[in-house]
Nucleic acid binder design. Structure first.
Lengths: 152, 152
DNA sequence: TATTGTTATACTCTATAACTATA
DNA sequence: TATAGTTATAGAGTATAACAATA
């Protein structure tokens, strides 16, 4: 079964992988996640908790934990821990949903809103750095294309 | 999840997040990873091990483990386990690099090349599904934009 | 019966440090 | 001294099932 010839005859897998959207997605996300977590660390946040906080800042009647789980593609049981942590720090509150007593609605406190402002600035700075090789128009276009994959 | 009237009236964090390339990257990658792992499961592979196998199929003189780690953004210690598994299954081999006796060169066996063919087809089918909302030209463009983030 | 939030648990993945053999 | 591979281990992230309260 020795067959170095066939191996040499193969097209270049490295070149193929760098054309593979899934691979590029994974690598770009790894860089983005690392940069985001680093930028948010000074505020005691990670990309995950920042996302929950951002969504809790959405409206006065914030999202339910179920909605958070769906939007962030997390298991509901993971959302519990994230919300616990942010609530313990006084950044968000669980409020019983008057329309459905099973559900909690997650809303930001004043402290949460204030921290979100700073976190947003930090996250945007990290993102600017990550997208240094893209023009503003290209960033918009990238967001458009990604959105069609992320929300099919 | 539908936006309420209240959400439309105020600055909308949900809308802001869906314009955020980092968030879209994370969500698109989560979908891509899940679809890829599901498509490769029947072959006993995951996206990770598939990537290592693909790179080992690259050339007769394959990549070193260090190169695999850098390219896939993994710690060298994680590559050990991936290479161990593929080697145990007879899909790749470690060969001492004649130019540097510290280094191993990872090359695919005949079985590895054969499995890679099937895995490539499965991965491409999953990707076609994931990119159903994109034209061929848009897929190429997305790959270009992602490459400039993934390989700065 | 089905769903929301919760707990518990097991599993995978990730990050770090230390060790060896080579350079 | 520095680097390639390896080992060990702790921590983070993920997936699953089960339960109480409510729909």
């Amino acid at each position: 079964m020795a067959k170095s010839d066939a191996a040499a005859a193969q097209p270049d897998a490295r070149a193929r992988l760098t054309d593979d959207v899934s691979f590029l997605l994974a690598r770009a996300n790894a860089l983005s996640l690392a940069a985001g977590n680093a930028a948010l660390a000074a505020l005691g946040l990670k990309v995950r908790s920042y996302s929950v906080l951002a969504l809790a800042c959405d409206t006065a009647a914030g999202p339910s934990q179920r909605e958070l789980a769906e939007f962030l593609r997390l298991d509901p049981s993971q959302v519990v821990a994230l919300v616990d942590d942010l609530q313990r720090r006084g950044l968000i509150e669980r409020r019983p949903d008057p329309a459905d007593r099973r559900a909690n609605v997650v809303v930001a406190t004043a402290d949460g809103l204030a921290l979100h402002e700073r976190a947003l600035a930090a996250a945007e700075a990290a993102e600017r750095d990550l997208h240094a090789n893209l023009s503003a128009a290209e960033r918009v276009q990238l967001a458009d294309l990604l959105r069609r994959i992320a929300f099919p």
